[in-house]
């Protein structure tokens, strides 16, 4: 009394690509060192060029 076997479609593979877009917000302005270092280097370069230009 077992019913006949019959083929059924398999569930297709489906990827979750939206999850890859989940990112932390930028913490750049919340962290001390990288921002300040960058500023002081550009400040130095600017100052240096400014000094060079005046001469």
């Amino acid at each position: 009394l077992t019913p006949d076997m019959e083929p059924i479609p398999c569930k297709p593979l489906f990827f979750d690509l939206a999850m890859n877009y989940l990112e932390m917000p930028s913490l750049e302005d919340k962290l001390e060192s990288p921002g300040k270092k960058g500023a002081s280097i550009t400040g130095f370069v600017k100052g240096f060029l400014g000094w060079g230009g005046n001469k």
Binding site: P9, P12, F14, F15, L17
Partner: peptide, 19 residues
């Protein structure tokens, strides 16, 4: 970098439509 996965998803949609 997810072009292949996206095409797989597209095939899944097509497979469901084919049913």
């Amino acid at each position: 970098e997810y072009e292949d996965e996206r095409r797989t998803n597209l095939s899944a949609v097509a497979a469901n439509l084919a049913l």
